[in-house]
Amino acid sequence: MSQDIVKQFIYGAVMMASVVSGLFFLKFWRKTADRFFAMFAISFFILAAERWFLVFMPSQAEENTWIFSMRLLAFLLIIIAVVDKNRS
């Protein structure tokens, strides 16, 4: 029981850090209108949503592919943003 509480606390902390990072990049996107910052903000918000879903799922359900596909989408978006920024 206590391991579940610790796991939920860690998931909540990671979710909060992802939201703060997303807001940080969103602030720079509003200043510069550079899509690099917009893609980073979206990817961190996706990572926050993924952790939010994990908090409410039973621990056996962590192997769901749609949870990991959200994580994959976020990291692919980060890779696309970096490649797009360095291409020009």
Score class of each variant (00 low, 15 high):
Met1Trp: 07
Ser2His: 10
Ser2Gln: 12
Ser2Trp: 06
Gln3Met: 15
Gln3Lys: 13
Gln3Leu: 14
Asp4Ser: 12
Val6Ile: 14
Val6Ala: 11
Val6Pro: 03
Lys7Met: 11
Lys7Tyr: 00
Lys7Asn: 13
Gln8Glu: 03
Ile10Pro: 04
Tyr11Ser: 06
Tyr11His: 08
Gly12Gln: 04
Gly12Asn: 07
Ala13Leu: 14
Ala13Asn: 15
Ala13Met: 14
Val14Ile: 15
Val14Gln: 12
Met15Asp: 04
Ser18Val: 03
Val19Cys: 06
Val20Arg: 04
Ser21Ala: 15
Ser21His: 11
Gly22Phe: 08
Leu23Arg: 09
Phe24Leu: 08
Phe24Ala: 05
Leu26Gln: 04
Lys27Thr: 14
Phe28Ile: 09
Trp29Phe: 09
Lys31Trp: 02
Thr32Asn: 05
Ala33Leu: 07
Ala33Pro: 01
Asp34Val: 10
Asp34Ala: 15
Arg35Gln: 14
Arg35Glu: 15
Phe37Trp: 11
Phe37His: 09
Phe37Ile: 08
Met39Cys: 08
Met39Lys: 02
Met39Val: 07
Met39Gln: 07
Met39Tyr: 02
Phe40Gly: 01
Ala41Ser: 13
Ile42Val: 14
Ser43Ile: 15
Ser43Met: 14
Ser43Thr: 15
Ser43Ala: 15
Ile46Lys: 05
Ile46Gly: 07
Leu47Gly: 06
Ala48Asn: 03
Ala49His: 05
Ala49Asn: 10
Ala49Arg: 04
Ala49Glu: 11
Trp52Glu: 01
Trp52Phe: 08
Leu54Ser: 03
Val55Cys: 00
Val55Tyr: 00
Val55Trp: 00
Phe56Ala: 10
Met57Gln: 14
Met57Val: 11
Pro58Gln: 10
Pro58Trp: 11
Gln60Glu: 03
Gln60His: 04
Gln60Leu: 01
Ala61Leu: 05
Ala61Arg: 05
Glu62Phe: 09
Glu62Ser: 12
Glu62Tyr: 09
Glu63Phe: 01
Glu63Gly: 04
Asn64His: 14
Asn64Leu: 15
Thr65Glu: 06
Ile67His: 02
Ile67Asp: 02
Phe68Asp: 05
Ser69Asp: 11
Met70Gln: 12
Met70Cys: 13
Arg71Lys: 07
Arg71Leu: 03
Arg71Glu: 00
Leu72Ala: 12
Leu72Pro: 06
Leu73Asn: 03
Leu73Glu: 02
Leu73Ala: 12
Leu73Thr: 12
Ala74Asp: 07
Ala74Asn: 08
Ala74Lys: 04
Ala74Thr: 09
Phe75Lys: 13
Phe75Val: 14
Phe75Pro: 02
Leu76Cys: 12
Leu77Gly: 07
Ile80Ser: 09
Val82Leu: 10
Val82Thr: 12
Val82Gln: 02
Val83Trp: 01
Val83Pro: 01
Arg87Thr: 09
Ser88Tyr: 05
Ser88Trp: 03
Ser88Phe: 08
Ser88Asn: 11
Ser88Cys: 07
